[in-house]
């Protein structure tokens, strides 16, 4: 049986991704200006303030979004900033809760006081708009079934007016929804941590200042880890991404060489 031409391309990508994961190459990198700006944004938030982190992604992108969310939670807890977590995608719920509870444990943070996880709400527009009026109305109970109005943190925070920053950890266009509804209607400060494939579509929002910060995929997470001096999963995965990009470029070059060779003949 003859393998189709694209099977060779698939095999090359597979090899390029797996090899560096098994044998790290430790290629050093330069930190991107977006990551520097994002870190400065978080540094500008006073201790004791509250940041809302929305896990707007599915299980499929966990390899890319978990490092993003983890490094953010570490930075926030290390500065004694409180976190309200939630998810507007059902599948982001378990991952979001897992990330926050692990990092909270690492920093000795107390549930209900330093952080809460509200869980999932469907119909994102209604949820985002509703939280502009009252968070406890949209989430009467948290992920663990506790009454939210009785949690100490949510006795001080009623809606976006008491939230210093909303961070959407997204693999799709839910970050746009936060800008459309929370920023435009309630003037909440919104920023996004995105999978790399989505970044280009968010650049107009970032350039216009509607998004106050943006972290770009695995590369952004690796930059953030470098800035915090806490090497983690993102830095380890960047070698694989490097090799995959290199292989795709070689395939493009190969495709062009074949095309020109064919034309000559």
């Amino acid at each position: 049986m003859r393998l189709p031409r694209r099977a060779f391309a698939f095999l090359a990508v597979f090899a390029a991704v797996t090899f560096p994961l098994l044998h790290p190459l430790n290629i050093s990198d330069r930190v991107s200006p977006e990551a520097v700006k994002f870190k400065a944004l978080i540094d500008s938030i006073p201790a004791g303030s509250v940041v809302m982190v929305s896990f707007d992604h599915e299980a499929s992108t966990v390899a890319e979004v978990r490092p993003l969310a983890t490094v953010l939670a570490r930075h926030l807890f290390s500065r004694d900033v409180k976190i309200i977590g939630l998810s507007l995608f059902a599948e982001g719920t378990a991952i979001g809760n897992q990330v926050l509870s692990l990092v909270a444990e690492e920093y000795g943070k107390k549930y209900g006081q330093d952080w809460v996880f509200l869980g999932f709400r469907p119909q994102f527009q209604a949820a985002i708009l509703g939280m502009g009026e009252s968070i406890t109305n949209v989430f009467p109970r948290d992920y663990y079934g506790k009454t939210t109005s009785e949690l100490p943190l949510l006795k001080e925070v009623f809606n976006y007016s008491q939230i210093a920053l909303v961070v959407s950890v997204a693999d799709g266009d839910l970050g746009y929804a936060w800008v459309d509804y929370a920023y435009t209607r309630y003037h909440a400060r919104v920023s996004a941590m995105l999978t790399a494939v989505m970044v280009a579509s968010y650049m107009p929002l970032y350039a216009s200042g509607q998004l106050s910060g943006l972290v770009n995929g695995l590369k952004g997470a690796a930059d953030y880890e470098r800035l915090l001096d806490k090497p983690g999963a993102a830095i380890r995965s960047m070698d694989a991404q490097s090799m995959a990009h290199a292989v795709i470029l070689l395939l493009i070059l190969g495709g062009n060489a074949a095309y020109w060779w064919g034309r000559k003949k």
Binding site: F10, F14, S60, A63, V247, I248, L251, I252, G254
Partner: peptide, 21 residues
């Protein structure tokens, strides 16, 4: 789900091979 998502890397490779002429 991660497996389906990761197919994107392979499809990007084949689409790039074909598309970027």
């Amino acid at each position: 789900q991660s497996t389906v998502f990761s197919l994107l890397a392979f499809f990007v490779a084949s689409a790039a091979f074909r598309g970027f002429r």
